[in-house]
């Protein structure tokens, strides 16, 4: 049958035509087309990868920023609390210092007062003794004006000394 017997002319032209087509495309079309297709695919792959990385990094950065922010907030709270504590402490210290100082002042004042009191007492005693001496001298002077009395006293004193011995 004609359909199943290949025709020589067609085989010949087929080789020629396909050869020409293949050579032309092989030389002028396929290198550039395949290269572009390949490199574009690569570019797209890289782009996707890059975008994914970028997103990941962004997410990471956001997370990091949040942790930093939280950290900062915590620190701020800490600092505030510390400051508060320190304030009360300082006030407490100041109060204590003031108290101590006041005590000291009071103590020294008391001491002084006591000293002065002592001095005053001493003075007072001295004065009293002076007054007493003066009074006693005057009294003795008046009593001793009489000889009797003087003898009597000497006698009594002598008796006393005798008794003791």
């Amino acid at each position: 049958m004609e359909l199943f017997t290949p025709d020589f002319g067609l085989i010949f032209w087929m080789f020629v035509a396909f050869g020409v087509l293949f050579l032309a495309l092989w030389k002028f079309a396929w290198p550039i087309i395949l290269k572009t297709v390949d490199s574009r695919a690569e570019l797209i792959d890289k782009g996707v990868e890059y975008a994914q990385n970028a997103k990941e990094q962004l997410d990471n950065a956001r997370k990091e920023a949040e942790t930093y922010l939280n950290e900062a907030r915590r620190q701020q709270a800490d600092i505030l609390r510390d400051a508060d504590k320190m304030k009360t402490q300082i006030i407490e210290q100041a109060r204590q210092a003031a108290q101590i100082e006041a005590q000291k002042v009071m103590d020294s004042a008391k001491l002084q007062i006591q000293q002065q009191q002592k001095e005053a007492q001493q003075q007072f005693r001295n004065q009293v003794s002076e007054f007493a001496l003066a009074i006693a001298g005057k009294i003795v002077h008046r009593q001793m004006e009489e000889d009797n009395a003087q003898n009597q006293l000497v006698d009594s004193l002598l008796d006393e000394i005798e008794k003791k011995n």
Binding site: A17, L21, F28, W30
Partner: peptide, 16 residues
């Protein structure tokens, strides 16, 4: 056949 060759060649060279 020639028409096919021209068609294919033309289109692909155009793409190139």
């Amino acid at each position: 056949l020639f028409i096919s060759v021209l068609l294919v060649g033309g289109l692909l060279l155009w793409l190139a």
